[in-house]
């Protein structure tokens, strides 16, 4: 956490509405700034704005500042804030929504490792129906920092030594059906 100055000049009056219309975001208007979420969050200390502060910013229409922050990228999806929020705000879902908006609108403030990781994962799952960890990690490192390949070789070797490194891709049979489901879902949105 820090005392980041807000940079945005004009406020975006529609931002609150935008978030409130997402599944899980409907109660955000009820946030009464108690700070339970920030106090529970395992990564609040590295976030530009704590979750509590982020919600104040959402409500006040600081769309640019919210999306430019690292807050939601540091969300681990642990759901503890959501469990504890006295106003039943589905905070984790809001963090997910912010990630999706940021990826879509290309908010890549810094080298966006999380975005690269997620898209590598999604590519593999859409192709095979199952994830394949070695390929996922290699793809991700190539996209972000190829020197990571060397740095992480030890880890891979360790897994191999214990017979824990899968060598074959695991594909489902109904790949066409799965793709049809994904295609249909893609054509719709919420």
């Amino acid at each position: 956490m820090n005392t980041h100055k807000l940079k945005q000049k004009a406020i975006d009056k529609d931002f609150l509405d935008e978030i409130a219309h997402l599944p899980g975001g409907e109660r955000i208007i009820d946030c009464f700034q108690c700070g339970t979420c920030s106090g529970s969050c395992p990564t609040a200390h590295v976030m530009d704005h704590t979750p509590r502060r982020l919600f104040a910013m959402v409500k006040a229409g600081f769309r640019e500042d919210v999306l430019n922050s690292n807050t939601y990228w540091y969300c681990t999806s642990c759901y503890i804030c959501t469990v504890r929020c006295p106003r039943q705000i589905k905070i984790t879902d809001v963090m997910y929504a912010l990630k999706r908006i940021a990826l879509k609108e290309r908010y890549v403030r810094r080298k966006n490792a999380a975005g690269a990781f997620y898209s590598s994962f999604v590519d593999i799952v859409e192709r095979d129906g199952r994830s394949f960890e070695p390929e996922l990690m290699v793809r991700f490192m190539l996209k972000t920092d190829p020197t990571l390949l060397l740095k992480n070789a030890v880890l891979g070797l360790k897994l191999m030594k214990h017979g824990r490194l899968p060598i074959r891709r695991n594909r489902i049979k109904a790949r066409n059906e799965l793709r049809a489901i994904i295609r249909k879902a893609k054509s719709e949105s919420l």
Binding site: R100, L103, A114, S131, L178, E188
Partner: peptide, 25 residues
Amino acid sequence: EDWNCCGATAYMSVRELMSFAISAR
């Protein structure tokens, strides 16, 4: 039989409806 990856955090971060859809399969 023929279950698919549930998508977890990564998929949910990219596409919501698709993430629910593969999980619902």
